[in-house]
Structure formats: structure tokens, C-alpha cells
């Protein structure tokens, strides 16, 4: 079976500015895949190219086994997308928009379903020129999902959504993916992505620097930190320093756990040193720190490779 989206050796330039370098990846059906990387890494460009909005220099893009080019892309009937910001006609109502972009069978049922899933009943019959930022964003997401496509591509979907709407969207994405929909989501809200994505594509300066699962990334970079609240933080810090534990420069007392023994050793040290422990928390590795670490490593390696080449 061909995968829903397969990109091979994709290269894309704007004039003589090379923006995507030999990008290759496949999406597993039914997975939620996060596309992360710094500003200007090429996330939006990659998504737009996959959607036939940009010409590309070389490589191939296949959706459900069919090649996508700007001129011809029938397979995009299987795809829904929201790129950067939603395009909205101010003179149409939200309902008009959904009607305009609904396609295939059961259009009316789909429209009503998406409206209730995203809680848009209160404003859907109003002209879009009066919508707030979040309403527009919801409408954009609804337009991406209205045909209940096999692949959904979302660029910064949480932009401007309130906590309630963010949760509704998260629930919707998870439930659709359980029904087999594949999602490719770029976001800078890493805490949100950490809750959603199973797989990760990390992109920097137009190159895929790592394709991994969320679980592997967190585990590999998973330096665990032990955070302590004590009766005497100053003394605790001194004791820890003397015993050569790795602490963080944070104002709070934090110890980097190198192995499973760290926690009991730290606790014994402090209790024996006469410091009362009020609270202990283990901080799991999080996506943000892991991502920063991966990017740092890849840049160092790239620099080394460049120096060697010279």
C-alpha cells in the first residue's frame, strides 16, 4: 500500500535562494505528525509545495500514490489544509464558506457535523467581516476538515484560539486520527504539540534534521530534573555542590538526575545535612528543551562538516 503522503528529495528555491534541501519523508496513515523548526526553517514552504501552490526544482511529491504538481493535483481531493492564516471572503457568511468548499457526498451532513464539533453555531450564519480572530481561525480549520479528508495539513492551527477552543480542536484531531485520518501539523506551541503528535519531523534551514517519534525524542533527550522545595534552599545548594551533584543555575533548587540512584542519594544527603524537604517533583523531559538540544547538535555538526570541507 502506498502511503498517504510521500515526499522524496524535494528541492525548492525562490530565485537563487535555496529554501528546501533534499527533503524526504513518508507519513504513516492515521498518525498525527508534528512539523517543528525555527522561524524561516521552511515549514510553510514545504506545506505549500505539497499542496501544489509552489513549483519545485526537483524531487517528487506523491499523495495516495499520485504525483502533485502546481498544474495537476486531483489527489488533493483527499486533502484538507489550513496554511498560515485562513483565507476568508468578508462578504460571505461562515455557512457560505463551508458550502463553497464542501465537496463530494453528504455535504450538508458534513457541514453540520463540523459546525457542532467546533462549536460555531452562534456565529456561522453571520457575515465573516464581523468575525474575531479566533472565529476566523475556527472557520479556517472547519474549511480544512469539512470534507473529512484522509490527510489534513495544518499550519499553526492554534493561532488565536482560546483554551476552550484549543481543547475542542485537540479532541477533534485525536478522534479523527483514531478514525484513520492522518495529520501533519506545524506549531510553535510545543506544549500543545507534545500532547498531540505521535511522530515528529524536525526541520532546520530547509533540511529534515530528524524524523522520529515523540516518545523516542523525549526519551533520548530525557534528562530528568529533580526539583526540590526545602526549608533552607541556600544550604541545600551548598550541600549538593559539595557532593558534586549537577545543579541547574535556576533560582530554584534543581538537580539533574544522571541515573535512577540520584533521587535517593540527594534525599539522604539533604536529610542527613539537616535540611527539611518540603516537596519533590520530577520534571520530565519536555519537547521544548529536547527540540532545542536537537537543533543545537545538528547545527554544531553542520558547522563541523563545513569546516572539514574547507
Amino acid at each position: 500500500m502506498s502511503s498517504i503522503l510521500s515526499v522524496q528529495n524535494l528541492n525548492k528555491s525562490f530565485g537563487n535562494k535555496h529554501v528546501l534541501h533534499d527533503v524526504s519523508f513518508d507519513l504513516k496513515p492515521g498518525h498525527i505528525v508534528g512539523l517543528v523548526g525555527p522561524n524561516g526553517a521552511g515549514k510553510s514552504t514545504l506545506m505549500k509545495t505539497m499542496l501544489g501552490l509552489f513549483n519545485y526544482d526537483s524531487g517528487s511529491i506523491k499523495i495516495a500514490g499520485e504525483t502533485v504538481t502546481p498544474q495537476k493535483h486531483e489527489s488533493l481531493s483527499k486533502v484538507g489544509a489550513l496554511i498560515e492564516y485562513p483565507g476568508i471572503y468578508p462578504f460571505l457568511t461562515g455557512w457560505d464558506h463551508l458550502q463553497l468548499f464542501a465537496d463530494g457526498d453528504h455535504q450538508l451532513i458534513h457541514i453540520q457535523k463540523i459546525i457542532s464539533q467546533l462549536n460555531m453555531d452562534s456565529f456561522i450564519k453571520r457575515k465573516a467581516k464581523g468575525y474575531s480572530l479566533g472565529m476566523k481561525q475556527k472557520l479556517g480549520i472547519a474549511l480544512a476538515l469539512v470534507n473529512f479528508p484522509e490527510l489534513v495539513i495544518l499550519d499553526e492551527p492554534m493561532n488565536g484560539l482560546d483554551p476552550e477552543a484549543t481543547k475542542e480542536l485537540r479532541d477533534l484531531i485525536i478522534s479523527e486520527s483514531q478514525h484513520g485520518t492522518t495529520f501533519l501539523i506545524s506549531s510553535h506551541i510545543l506544549s500543545e504539540l507534545q500532547r498531540l503528535a505521535q511522530d515528529l519531523l524536525i526541520i532546520d534551514e530547509g533540511r529534515i534534521v530528524q524524523q522520529t517519534t515523540m516518545h523516542e525524542l523525549l526519551a533520548s533527550q530525557g534528562k530528568q530534573t529533580i526539583m526540590l522545595m526545602t526549608s533552607d534552599d541556600k544550604k541545600a545548594r551548598q550541600l549538593l555542590k559539595k557532593a558534586r551533584f549537577k545543579t541547574t543555575p535556576d533560582p530554584r533548587v534543581e538537580v539533574v538526575a544522571t541515573d535512577d540512584n540520584t533521587m535517593p542519594e540527594v534525599l539522604r544527603l539533604l536529610v542527613e545535612g539537616g535540611v527539611d524537604i518540603l516537596d519533590v517533583t520530577r520534571l520530565e523531559g519536555n519537547l521544548e528543551s529536547s527540540l532545542l538540544e536537537v537543533l543545537k547538535q545538528s547545527r554544531i555538526q553542520k558547522r563541523l562538516a563545513e569546516e572539514e570541507a574547507e
Partner: peptide, 20 residues
């Protein structure tokens, strides 16, 4: 031009219909 102005051109294009 309205499609460019409202940012709707991409939505109009990334469907199964060809550009032509």
C-alpha cells in the same frame, strides 16, 4: 485580485481542480 487580497487563492487552488 480579491482572491489574493483576502488570502483565499490558496484555498481555491489546493483542491482537486487544476489551475487551468
Amino acid at each position: 485580485t480579491m482572491e489574493f487580497q483576502y488570502g483565499t487563492m490558496k484555498q481555491v487552488l489546493y483542491r482537486r481542480y487544476s489551475r487551468g
